[in-house]
């Protein structure tokens, strides 16, 4: 067990490629929760996120023979999870309309802050952020991942995550103006 903990993702993936079940277990332990958090950003339902994650791991283990272990495992794996999640929400038109997590830099303007204030809670204010800002805030502030981890999960750089967080905080501060300091 401790042996697996000391190995890098790439070393574990290389071992799993050779049929090492313990190495694969270690990868599952490392990536299960981040993958669920990422999938949730798309599906907004734990059950659906679970399906996405299971399918993501299913595809990943079958594609391991094609994985180039000179490249980061995290980027490769999260790309699979994002693709599965996009496919899942595109099949489900209702949720796709509710949670289109766009990874574009130019995001649509978020709804006006006063609406969020009227709703009266932080969760609603976060809902009103642009999708990428929501994802960054949820992953970094609610799920506890670092901006580096969130960047890997979302397929963007750490700097991009920080930029989204900065914009999101600014907007949330404005939206939560009477209660400034809540998100400090």
């Amino acid at each position: 067990m401790s042996n697996e903990q000391n190995r890098t993702d790439e070393e574990l993936a290389r071992a799993a490629k050779g049929g090492d079940a313990d190495a694969y277990d270690a990868l599952v332990r490392r990536y299960l929760r981040p993958a669920m958090a990422l999938a949730w950003q798309y599906t907004r339902r734990v059950e659906d996120a679970e399906d996405v994650v299971q399918e993501g791991f299913h595809r990943a283990v079958r594609a391991l023979s094609d994985y180039d272990d000179r490249r980061p495992f995290s980027a490769w794996f999260y790309t699979i999870v994002r693709n599965v999640a996009r496919t899942a929400i595109s099949k489900d038109g209702r949720r796709a309309a509710l949670a289109p997590l766009t990874l574009l830099e130019d995001e649509p303007p978020a709804p006006s802050p006063p609406d969020a204030i009227a709703a009266g809670d932080v969760a609603r204010a976060i809902e009103d952020l642009a999708p990428m800002q929501q994802a960054c805030v949820r992953l970094c502030h609610l799920e506890g991942f670092t901006s580096i981890e969130a960047g890997a999960m979302l397929g963007v750089s750490e700097g991009t995550v920080r930029t989204h967080l900065h914009r999101a905080r600014k907007q949330l501060r404005t939206a939560m103006d009477p209660r400034q300091g809540m998100l400090q």
Partner: peptide, 21 residues
């Protein structure tokens, strides 16, 4: 439980990878 299901799902491919060594 979720990790266990994922591991079970991977058993077949992992055995195949080991056999192909």
């Amino acid at each position: 439980g979720l990790a266990s299901r994922i591991r079970e799902d991977a058993a077949g491919p992992l055995v195949a990878y080991a056999a192909a060594q």
